[in-house]
Nucleic acid binder design. Structure first.
Lengths: 159, 159
DNA sequence: GATTTCCTACTCGGATACGGTGTGTCCGAGTGAAACTGG
DNA sequence: CCAGTTTCACTCGGACACACCGTATCCGAGTAGGAAATC
């Protein structure tokens, strides 16, 4: 899995602290975790295309959450970065070889593929069951003072 | 995910049909699905290291299942090929940046990491819940005649 | 004919190239705010 | 003082290199079986 997923999740969480009123530039989001700014910008763009973030160019521009945190699931972020293709790619090799008959025999799904799909479905279900708001709640419980400090840091020197 | 996982699963299934009495060469396993023989051999080696298969060199050598099919789970095969590292790599970027304090503050786990771990655990649990024997049973139900034909093909011209 | 020796073909196993994708960087198009000018 | 215009710094967005890992191939080490030679 791409490390862009990790960056995107942390950035979404930070944007959740800041709130939708103020836009945060990719450079500033990168500075918060010491990430390469241009590359982070590149990673955030699929999130904007997926309508998880909104991006505004120009001065006082930047990124902000496009929806309420409770409406953005972890699955949304992951699929935005990694794409919606299954991680296990079934190339249907069962249809190749000396014993492979006519393609009509293979209308029923490949059972190995099906088994992997079940596992992947469980993974997706778990990811879809948690949203950004759950994360903010959990973090504010584990680190009561942190959210305000983060919010203040993003407000300061931002304009 | 590597396509080697798909190959390994199909090969393990075929070896389950053949049974542990006879060894099957990588070349013959490859021919059954029209795969590049040398590369398939390379993919089967981690399975041998993981003691899922046993490999014997020399004439009449090849691969065979090292354990009973019901003792080999899909998770075993996947981790043998892909490794046991988590697919989501937490690089602890929360510890980097201007607001990152001393490392002692980060003894509690990264909550984003924890959330991804939960999803991955669900995935692993689903994979561990199915073994090779389940697959053979399912296939023999969906395609009653297939197992015997596969068995015969691997027996013929093999010695 | 039995036994020992040698040889040969066969198999896995690791070492060696190639290509694609993730990683990282740079520059241009567009925008909004601020400054300047004129009334 | 205020409105209109111009300028300009700032931001995203996509185009351009680099590196690593998955893909693919080849050759050597080791082995088992059989053939040949010997007793």
């Amino acid at each position: 899995m791409t490390e862009g997923v990790e960056w995107a999740l942390h950035c979404c969480l930070n944007l959740a602290w800041v709130g939708p009123d103020r836009a945060v530039t990719a450079t500033r989001l990168a500075a918060f975790h010491e990430l390469p700014p241009a590359y982070l910008n590149k990673q955030l763009q699929p999130l904007a295309r997926a309508e998880i973030l909104t991006s505004t160019p120009g001065p006082r521009g930047g990124f902000r959450l496009a929806q309420a945190p409770e409406r953005i699931t972890l699955l949304d972020v992951v699929t935005a970065i990694e794409g919606s293709t299954e991680v296990f790619r079934c190339t249907e090799i069962r249809q190749q070889g000396p014993l492979a008959g006519s393609p009509e025999l293979y209308r029923d799904p490949c059972l190995i593929h099906a088994a992997m799909q079940r596992a992947e479905l469980a993974w997706r279900r778990e990811l879809a069951g948690q949203n950004l708001d759950d994360l903010t709640v959990a973090v504010s419980r584990a680190r009561p003072g942190l959210p305000d400090r983060v919010r203040r840091w993003f407000h300061e020197a931002a304009g």
